[in-house]
Amino acid sequence: MKKIILLLVAATVIFSSCDKNDDVISETQETPGKVTVNFDAVFGSTDFALSTNFTSGTKTYNFDKFRYWVSNVVLVKTNGEEFSVPKSYFLLEETKALALSDLGEFTYPATKREQIVLSDIPAGDYKAIKFSVGVDSKYNDNMSLQAGELSQYNGMTNISWMWLTSYIFTAVGGKVTEGTTNKTIKVETGLNANYKSVSLNFPQNVKIGATKATSINLKADVAKVLDGIDVMTTPTVGASQATTMTAVANNYSTKVFSVVSVN
């Protein structure tokens, strides 16, 4: 009888120990991780840079800024479950110093930023990323509300599009030359209708967790921003050119971004 009792106690201890080990493993597996998302700016097959000539067809471009808001980032698991990253509003940009006289001669410094870091992402295997380009109407129509990196102190606001100040969603500026004709281009979006979503599948699944450094490498093609836009005829794109503005916004949604790799 004593032998039976001892065996039962031993079995209980063993199973209890296994349960605790399983709990530790489970907790380790479920620890949230972080992921770095790189938005590498290019012009066609060439790395993008300011004050550099890029040729497309009969036109030569030389840019002084490329800026856009990435917002409401969503990561999609292999089982279809989606995780919405809270307060995910990021300004991606490559710009020269900007003098912002409406802020008391404030100068926004020259900046290059092609990377965002997403933290506290539930551990697991992921197959896709979604995000929007621009600022959703909740914040675009009420700039007293703040979330993420949204701010009026970066030269990405405009008072001429609506009765109230709103955000500039995307901005490309510089010079374009065709033959002997030179134009200054300023191509922007910012109306609520220009708020567009992007959905990108990964070439293979990627694991996110506390024990692994994870990166998602995207390409942002400035040439595709201007695809189908006659910048010689319409070098300035704003609210008064709503149809062209819509075409530019659609380019951001469907053409500009692509996945290079995940690891």
Rank of each mutant, 00 (worst) to 15 (best):
G238M: 00
I5E: 03
V73C: 07
V37P: 05
E149Q: 03
K186I: 02
V117S: 02
V117C: 02
V73M: 05
K65G: 02
N201F: 02
S132Q: 15
L145E: 01
T95Y: 12
V187E: 09
F202C: 06
I216P: 01
D125S: 03
R113P: 13
V85T: 06
I129Y: 00
I216H: 03
Y153E: 13
N194I: 03
G33K: 04
V259N: 00
E178P: 07
T52H: 14
T60S: 10
D227R: 11
D227Y: 06
L145I: 10
F48M: 11
Y195C: 05
N154I: 01
S199P: 00
S132M: 10
K196D: 13
L118P: 01
M232V: 04
E93P: 12
A11C: 08
E30M: 15
K219Y: 09
C18E: 12
L118N: 12
S119Q: 04
K255F: 03
R67M: 08
T233Q: 07
N53P: 08
G57E: 06
Q204R: 00
F54A: 02
L191G: 07
A128P: 09
K224S: 14
L6N: 12
T211D: 13
V172R: 09
N194T: 08
I25G: 07
G57L: 09
N251F: 14
F169P: 02
T233R: 00
K59R: 06
N21V: 13
P109L: 14
V262H: 03
K255T: 00
T31L: 11
D22T: 08
F48Y: 07
A110S: 01
Q29Y: 15
A247F: 01
F48A: 04
D230F: 13
K212P: 10
T111F: 04
E178K: 11
F48V: 10
E93N: 02
V133D: 11
A49Q: 00
A99D: 15
K59N: 13
F63S: 06
E94D: 01
N53G: 13
N154D: 10
S240Y: 00
L164K: 08
S215A: 03
L7E: 14
T211A: 08
A210F: 11
D47F: 05
V259T: 04
M162G: 14
N21K: 09
S84K: 15
S197Y: 03
A110G: 02
E188W: 08
G33Y: 07
V172Y: 10
A110Y: 07
L191R: 14
V262A: 09
V187G: 02
S26L: 14
W69D: 04
G104S: 00
D230M: 10
I185T: 05
F66D: 15
A128H: 05
G33Q: 10
E114M: 05
T12W: 11
G209W: 09
T95E: 08
E30V: 15
P86R: 05
S84R: 09
V198T: 11
F66K: 02
G44F: 09
A10H: 08
K34V: 04
D221M: 11
W69M: 01
T177A: 15
C18L: 13
I4W: 04
I116M: 12
L191Y: 15
G173T: 03
G209H: 07
T189K: 02
S45Q: 10
K34N: 12
